[in-house]
């Protein structure tokens, strides 16, 4: 037992019988974690190692796999579709982070100040509703909402005097349309996180700033935002990681089109792996997704540690 153990569980060792009891303890501990360990090995640990190995092979699932070393990665770095997919995924993730953080924070600030309890309940529920609906239902619904002939959105844009595009057939509007749908679908999540974060801002600080003559804008920038920075950072990271794996609406609505305008990394991995059956190549694409997510997670881990020390 090392000194860095987090949980003080074992009693002080000494006599022989205590020693035997400890052996039994060890054995029981392994017993309790064994189902999880077996399942972990079969469905997470093993597949992880296997996926990395697969990326070094060329395999179509039918003919024997052929070891090709890093060839898949060399091909990847010359693959224009991969670059397009990488760009689309980054644009999507970036737009998702900006819209959700700004929208979620403003909404949480507003809802926190709402006077009527009924209005507050209504807004919280209305914003959260879309988040619990499956992406499949959301995608189908929005295909109709954004339909150029009988869609609601185009009708109301028309009324406002805006000439709406044919969203999913126009390469420059398909990705923004998916960004908009994602905003509707997941704003509720960011909103809840922000609302929880807002509760952590001590009221006596804002009150003190008010007494000192600070206006709302100054209080927001100099008290609320700094006090909420851990929440803002956490929400940014979680939103980015979620958005970076976007797949369902793309596959359902546009299937990556038009002209790969909405092909994201996971969409490309799906096409390569489960439609073209380039298993090794698809694994290499998935590894790129993994590496980006790992870097972002480690960044979060590292910075949040620094924050804890500063507080």
């Amino acid at each position: 037992m090392t000194a860095t153990t987090l949980v003080p569980a074992s009693r002080a060792s000494g006599t022989e019988s205590q020693h035997r009891g400890r052996r039994r303890q060890e054995w029981l501990g392994y017993l309790f974690i064994s189902p999880a360990v077996v399942l972990f090995a079969v469905f997470i640990g093993g597949p992880f190692v296997f996926a990395i190995a697969l990326s070094l092979f060329s395999w179509d699932l039918l003919t024997p796999a052929e070891f090709v070393g890093l060839d898949n990665f060399v091909t990847l770095f010359q693959d224009p579709v991969l670059f397009q997919a990488f760009g689309n995924t980054f644009i999507f993730a970036f737009a998702s982070v900006v819209t959700h953080i700004v929208g979620g924070l403003l909404l949480a600030l507003g809802v926190n100040r709402i006077a009527s309890r009924v209005v507050s309940y209504f807004v919280r529920t209305a914003v959260f509703f879309p988040f619990i609906i499956s992406w499949a239902a959301v995608s189908l619904l929005w295909q109709y909402l954004l339909d150029p002939t009988f869609g609601l959105v185009n009708h109301y844009l028309d009324r406002l005097g805006i000439q709406p595009p044919d969203w999913f057939l126009d390469p420059s509007w398909a990705l923004p349309a998916i960004i908009g749908i994602d905003f509707w679908h997941t704003l509720g999540f960011t909103f809840i996180i922000m609302l929880a974060g807002l509760q952590t801002v001590p009221e006596h600080l804002t009150e003190a700033a008010k007494t000192d003559g600070a206006n709302r804008w100054q209080i927001f920038w100099n008290v609320t935002v700094p006090m909420m920075s851990p929440t803002l950072f956490f929400a940014t990271v979680v939103t980015f990681i979620g958005a970076f794996q976007i797949f369902d609406p793309v596959q359902i609505i546009t299937n990556g089109g038009p002209d790969d305008a909405t092909t994201t990394l996971v969409m490309y991995m799906y096409e390569q792996g489960f439609q073209a059956f380039q298993i090794g190549y698809a694994s290499a694409v998935a590894i790129i997704v993994f590496v980006v997510i790992m870097l972002v997670t480690l960044l979060q881990f590292w910075t949040s540690r620094k924050w804890v020390h500063q507080q």
């Binding site: 060890e26 597949p47 792996g273 997704v289």
Partner: peptide, 27 residues
């Protein structure tokens, strides 16, 4: 319980939270 490798196994499981499901789905 305390047993040999407890923290190691726990940390290994935790790091798997970084692994996207899409990487695992092919295997």
């Amino acid at each position: 319980f305390s047993f040999r490798g407890r923290n190691g196994i726990f940390i290994m499981m935790l790091s798997a939270l970084m692994v996207p499901a899409q990487l695992l789905i092919i295997p």
